[in-house]
Design a binder for these strands. Structure first.
Length: 591
DNA sequence: GCCGTTTTCGGCCCGACTGTTTTCAGTCG
C-alpha cells in the first residue's frame, strides 16, 4: 500500500516531538518530490542517503543536534544540517513546504506503482494533468496513456497491471515465512537439470528483520531452460519480467520472486551482487574503481578490459584486498572500512549457543511441561535451560502466584534429577514490569530465583518520558538480570515503545543488566540498531527464543541473525556461556 | 547536496530488462 499519502501531519509531530524515523521519512519524501520535479539525480540521492543514515542512527537526533554533531552523520553537510535544525526547532521546514506547493503530494502515490518512476510520474502530471492514483488508473483504462511521448499500448497495460499488483501485494514477510518459502524454491531450483548451485540472496540472505521480495540466484551451464521452467512454475501468477539472466515473477499469494542465473564460473560475482545491499555494492564498486577495476554481477574487468571471473564471493572480496564480509554486515554501516582496517568482528555462529534463558511451560501459557521442554533443549544440544514463566499480574497468560512459583520449583527439581548432568535447569521468571516501573513480585521472591527477566506487556503506549522512566526503574532493581523484548514491538505492524534508548542503554550498562534479543520472528527485539550500540557499550546480550512450545526452541537462529547484524561476537552473547559462567556473572553483579 | 590516500570542484556504480525507439530512456535491484 502507498506510504506518504496526503499531508504530513507536521503539527502533530511538533507536539509529540520528532524522532529519527519521522525525520528520515521527511528526507525520503523530499527526495521523491525532488525526483518528480526533475531535480538532478545526485541531489535526490543525497537526500536518500541522509534518510538512510537517520534510520541507522542509534541515538536520538535531538541529542546529536544539541551536542553539535549533526555534521558527523554520514551524508549530512551544511545544507542538510540547516534543514534538520529547522525541523527540530520549529517542527516545520520552509523548503519542504515550498516543494509541496510546486509538486502535488498526491503524486507520491503514483511512485509506488511498479515500473512507474519519477520521470513517468512527471510525464503523467505535466502532459496529462494526472494528479492522483485513481486518475492514473482511469486514464489507463480509457487508453489515454498510450498517446503520451515514450508511452505505448504495452506501457499503458503495464501501468494498469502495476496498479492491480500493488493492490494484491502482500505486506512484508516475517523472516521465518520468507525462509520457508525461499527454501522450498531453492529445493525446486537445485532439482532442475543443469543447475549446479542455488542460493538465497538479497535481504533474505542478509537476514533483514522483515522481507519484501525473495531473491534467488543459480549457477547453470545453460540458463534458458531453467528460466523457462521458473516462469512456467505452477505457483506463478504473473511474469513481471523475463530475460536470459534475470526474471521476476509474482506468486499467487502476491509475493514477488526474482531469479538471477549465471554460468558457474561467474556464480561468486552474481551471488555477491544479488545479496546487496545496494549501498554496500555501490561502495564496493567505488572501491574497485579506485583500483582500476570495474565490478558487476558478471565479474571484475580491469583497465585493459580483461575479465576476472569469480566462482565464489571470497574471490571478489579478495581481489579488492578485503577479507570476506558476512552477508549480515553488508548494510553500508562501516563494514567496508572495518574490513580494510582488519577490524571486522568474529561473528557469533549458531553453533556457539548453549543456553536458553527464557522459556515458558504449562505452568503459565506454554504448551509443554517442564520435563518436555528440558528434553527438547537437551536434544538441541543445549547445556542450560531457564524456566521463566509469567508473573501473577499477567492474568491473561496464566501468570504464577508466589505460591505457584514455589510449587514450580519442586517440579523443576524433579526434572533436573531426570536430566542428570546433561542439562542444567534454572528456575526463573519473566516478571511483568507494571506501568509505573515496579515489578510484579516482591523483591524477596525475586531474590530466591536463578534468573529474573523483566518485561513490559501492557501500557505500551506511554509517552516517551514515562516509558523510559518505567524501564529504567525496572533496570535499577538489583534483582533484575535481564530485560525481555525491550521495546515490545510486534512485527510487521506494531511499533515498539517510544524510548530514550541512550538513557536505557546507559542504565543497563551501569546496573550490569543484560538485554534480550528475542528470537521470535514477530519480535526480534532488541532491534539491531540498538543491539549494535549495546555491543559497543559492552552490555551483554542474550538470544532467547521465549519458547512457548518445544518446537519454538528452534527459532534461536533468528535471534542469532539479529546479533550478527549487530556485529556481536560469541563472547558478547551470554547464551554462549556455560551455566557456571552465567551464575558467576549473576553473583558478581550482586556483590 | 556531499565529499576528498589521485579532487575544495568535478565527480558521484553497473548491468539486465522493457518498450519505445532506429540508438535510447526509464526502471529496478
Amino acid at each position: 500500500m502507498p506510504r506518504n499519502t496526503g499531508q504530513f501531519a507536521l503539527n502533530e509531530l511538533q507536539l509529540s516531538g520528532m524522532n529519527n524515523q519521522d525525520l528520515a521519512d521527511l528526507f525520503d519524501r523530499m527526495a521523491d518530490l525532488l525526483a518528480i520535479k526533475g531535480e538532478v539525480i545526485y541531489i535526490t540521492l543525497a537526500y536518500r542517503r541522509v534518510a538512510e543514515s537517520l534510520r541507522d542512527l542509534p541515538e536520538d537526533i535531538h541529542t546529536v543536534q544539541r551536542e553539535g554533531r549533526l555534521r558527523q552523520i554520514p551524508g549530512v553537510g551544511k545544507e542538510v544540517e540547516k534543514k534538520i535544525e529547522e525541523l527540530l526547532s520549529t517542527g516545520k521546514l520552509a523548503f519542504l513546504e515550498r516543494l509541496e506547493q510546486e509538486v502535488p503530494v498526491s503524486l507520491l502515490d503514483l511512485l509506488q506503482v511498479p515500473d512507474v518512476g519519477p520521470k513517468k510520474v512527471a510525464l503523467f502530471w505535466k502532459q496529462a494533468n494526472i494528479n492522483t492514483l485513481p486518475e492514473l488508473e482511469q486514464a489507463a483504462r480509457e487508453g489515454r496513456l498510450r498517446a503520451l511521448p515514450g508511452m505505448g499500448e504495452k506501457s499503458e497495460a503495464r501501468v494498469l497491471a502495476g496498479i492491480e499488483a500493488m493492490q494484491r501485494r502482500s505486506r512484508r514477510m516475517l523472516l521465518n515465512t520468507a525462509w520457508s518459502l525461499g527454501e522450498s524454491w531453492l529445493e525446486w531450483l537445485r532439482a532442475q537439470p543443469g543447475v549446479s548451485r542455488a542460493e538465497a540472496a538479497g535481504s533474505l540472505r542478509r537476514w533483514k528483520t522483515t522481507i519484501g521480495d525473495i531473491d534467488l540466484v543459480a549457477a547453470a551451464s545453460a540458463a534458458a531452460p531453467v528460466m523457462e521452467a521458473f516462469i512456467q512454475h505452477p505457483d506463478v501468477f504473473r511474469v513481471a519480467s523475463q530475460g536470459e539472466n534475470k526474471s521476476s515473477v509474482e506468486l499467487k499469494g502476491g509475493v514477488h520472486i526474482q531469479l538471477w542465473i549465471q554460468s558457474p564460473d561467474r556464480f561468486g560475482s552474481l551471488l555477491q551482487y544479488a545479496t546487496g545491499s545496494k549501498e554496500h555494492n555501490v561502495h564496493l564498486r567505488e572501491l574497485a574503481l579506485k583500483q582500476g577495476l570495474s565490478l558487476s554481477e558478471r565479474g571484475l574487468v580491469n583497465a585493459e578490459g580483461r575479465e576476472q571471473l569469480a566462482a565464489t564471493e571470497e574471490e571478489i572480496y579478495a581481489a579488492l584486498g578485503l577479507p570476506y564480509i558476512a552477508p549480515e554486515l553488508r548494510e553500508e554501516r562501516g563494514e567496508i572500512q572495518a574490513a580494510l582496517e582488519g577490524r571486522l568482528p568474529r561473528l557469533l555462529e549458531p553453533g556457539d549457543l548453549q543456553a536458553e534463558l527464557h522459556a515458558h511451560t504449562l505452568w503459565s501459557d506454554g504448551r509443554n511441561t517442564v520435563e518436555e521442554m528440558a528434553k527438547a533443549a537437551r536434544q538441541r544440544g543445549l547445556k542450560t535451560l531457564a524456566i521463566t514463566d509469567h508473573s501473577v499480574g499477567l492474568g491473561i497468560a496464566g501468570g504464577l502466584t508466589v505460591e505457584e512459583l514455589h510449587q514450580q520449583r519442586v517440579d523443576i527439581q524433579a526434572a533436573q534429577r531426570e536430566m542428570g548432568d546433561a542439562l542444567h535447569l534454572l528456575h526463573g521468571t519473566e516478571v511483568d514490569i507494571r506501568a509505573d516501573g515496579s515489578l510484579d513480585y516482591p523483591d524477596e521472591v525475586l531474590a530466591e530465583l536463578d534468573i529474573v527477566i523483566a518485561s513490559m506487556h501492557s501500557a505500551l503506549r506511554q509517552p516517551k518520558e514515562a516509558a523510559t522512566e518505567r524501564l529504567i526503574r525496572a533496570i535499577s532493581n538489583p534483582h533484575v538480570d535481564m530485560i525481555g523484548h525491550p521495546s515490545g514491538r510486534l512485527l510487521p505492524n506494531r511499533e515498539g515503545m517510544d524510548l530514550d534508548w541512550v538513557a536505557v542503554l546507559e542504565a543497563a550498562r551501569q546496573h550490569g543488566v543484560a538485554l534480550e534479543i528475542n528470537a521470535n520472528p514477530n519480535r526480534l527485539d532488541l532491534d539491531e540498531v540498538y543491539a549494535r550500540r549495546a555491543v559497543e557499550m559492552g552490555i551483554p546480550l542474550s538470544i532467547n527464543t521465549d519458547a512457548h512450545s518445544t518446537e519454538q526452541l528452534d527459532q534461536s537462529i533468528y535471534g542469532v541473525s539479529v546479533a550478527r547484524r549487530a556485529w556481536a561476537s560469541a563472547e558478547q552473547v551470554m547464551s554462549t556461556w556455560t551455566t557456571e559462567r552465567f551464575l558467576a556473572w549473576k553473583n558478581r553483579r550482586q556483590e
